[in-house]
Design a protein around this nucleic acid. Structure first.
Lengths: 334, 334
DNA sequence: GTGAAAGCGCTAACAA
DNA sequence: TTGTTAGCGCTTTCAC
């Protein structure tokens, strides 16, 4: 049926070891026999069986990627970064969605390990001790992408969320006469979001702004969550002059929530987002936001993982990529 | 090092065959020995090696998904549909991006086959004879998702693109005093887009509208492409009263292109999109569009693939899912 | 530069 | 109900 290395060996009058050498680019093969082998491979349409190879070599050139939700624009960009670098290094990706549920995550890690992946790229919300435990006892390296582990035990690639939150808030404060910006938080339990909030608080503190709790709004991580947030903000006695929204998609909902009720952004209220997904340029007014380089995070995380898989030396185990503020029209009246 | 089925067998005083039976849920095991085996599996932390299993059983419970670009919101929704059904049937997905390049596509198919996937889900633009050839000689089933193969030889899941294009155009014609809507096309060589265009032409014909070629605009498949399209439209002697844009993302660019130049949608020009990605509700005015059920296409395609993989009988090899028009504010002055 | 042979960890007859 | 024994298709010593 399927043609094996053994068939090729027989047809080419060499041993299977030689065929294996040719297939794997081992230099210890006489050019003439290499040519002969290559010819019969071509003739028979031989295609190496990666599963058999994996069993014999204990390497599958496959890595597992556990991601909350690939249909989320943030993660799909991240995934693209991962994929591109993986391809560059000849790895394939087994991609699975966890919906950020611990149970799914732990289960998926196990499945990936069963499939003998050479490494795991993990994206998630909350890293629990159980996660850490599983990562540390894993037989293959694990790298976290856009996922914060406060213990810093697991290699990771992130931006400085606290600083980013601080800077965005600071910008809003400075442009609004030292008034407290509101903040719209989603998935408040996820450490990265806590960090954004901490940055927000630090900025308030530094500007000696008296903190009003009612300006902290928690809503779903969704466009509709943003609409809801706008409604909540409009129910307050006084509309704050600005709002920091911790996800672009939610921020766009906030903008439209205001606009649909006759308010103008940025005139009535300025809106600052977070992530710089491509959505940020696809609204009117365009969204000022914190640039988080999703693609790069994915790419760098994958690169880092290859280093671990190849047992290369790693100097920087917890990579912090630069971020910046991109000011657009949702904060700038012009 | 790693604990194998053999270790478990020894520790539990049974043969590896029995352990295998327990692991695979084979009922021919006495409950007491099953319990004993399970206990030692637990105790030793045994984790079955899927690669060895794959080699022995010739099944990997892994399917390959070849997708143009996972960071595209359309495909990422599709991918989610695929993934969810795959999980339901205990399959894992190897996901790869092709950027719709034939060379990559062919290469990826080959890689997937080397990895011994049990089936392939293919999404792409142009299906050439070479593709068909490779699919037909593939040792595992292949299903196309949102990808048109005019020969209908390969199993597929689609909507009726021609009809959808026809209906959208028809709607625009009827709401605009029989004037020819413009059409903005991206990736014109892809058969699905040709079909949309054919539907457009049929609608014109049916309404006895004299066809003006200058109302056919071709731009990149991107938001910026939409901006460009709006510019091109504004360069015409007379602005058409409506435009059918064959992708939502481009349509949103078109809307903003007009708005940024002081024109109003739908008052100055109506805009109709295609796909109903979640972007459609995230613009103002909200986008009227053809609802293409991406998630369902992915899910149904994966389900279809499982049928082929299990050698179940398939009654409907080329599935055509229903679509509909979702009228929103980009075509309805209110 | 090439070949022989022993696994890799498991499944699946076939026996018992 | 359980065990024995071939492989699955390849890599990788170790000889020659």
């Amino acid at each position: 049926m399927t043609v094996t290395i053994y068939d090729v060996a027989r047809e080419a009058n060499v041993s299977m070891a030689t065929v294996s050498r040719v297939v794997n680019g081992n230099p210890n093969v006489k050019p003439s026999t290499r040519k002969k082998v290559l010819a019969t491979i071509e003739r028979l349409g031989y295609r190496p069986n990666a599963v058999a190879r994996g069993l014999a070599s204990k390497k599958t050139t496959t890595v597992g990627a556990i991601i909350p939700d690939i249909s989320n624009i943030f993660f799909s960009e991240l995934a693209r970064g991962i994929e591109d670098i993986a391809t560059m290094y000849k790895y394939n990706i087994i991609l699975s969605n966890s919906d950020s549920k611990k149970e799914n995550e732990l289960q998926l890690i196990n499945t990936m390990l069963e499939k003998q992946v050479d490494g795991i790229l993990f994206m998630g919300g909350n890293i629990t001790d159980e996660h850490i435990q599983q990562f540390k006892t894993s037989s293959v390296p694990v790298v976290l992408a856009a996922t914060y582990d406060s213990s810093n035990e697991i290699p990771s690639v992130n931006i400085d969320y606290e600083l980013a939150g601080y800077e965005a808030t600071k910008d809003l404060i400075e442009n609004n006469n030292n008034q407290q910006p509101a903040i719209v938080i989603s998935v408040p339990d996820a450490p990265v979001n806590k960090l954004k909030y901490e940055g927000y608080l630090r900025a308030l503190e530094e500007s000696n702004i008296e903190f009003s709790e009612e300006l902290v709004i928690t809503v779903d991580y969704s466009y509709d969550g943003g609409i809801t947030a706008a409604e909540k903000l409009l129910e307050l006695e006084a509309l704050p002059s600005s709002v920091f929204v911790t996800f672009d998609e939610v921020a766009i909902g906030v903008i439209h929530g205001f606009q649909d009720r006759g308010y103008n952004v940025p005139e009535d209220i300025q809106v600052f987002g977070f992530d710089n997904t491509k959505l940020a340029k696809m609204v009117r007014p365009t969204l000022s936001t914190v640039v988080q380089p999703m693609y790069d995070i994915g790419a760098v995380a994958m690169r880092l993982l290859t280093k671990y898989m190849n047992k290369e030396e790693v100097t920087d185990k917890n990579v912090v990529l630069p971020h910046r503020l991109e000011k657009r029209n949702s904060t700038t009246s012009n």
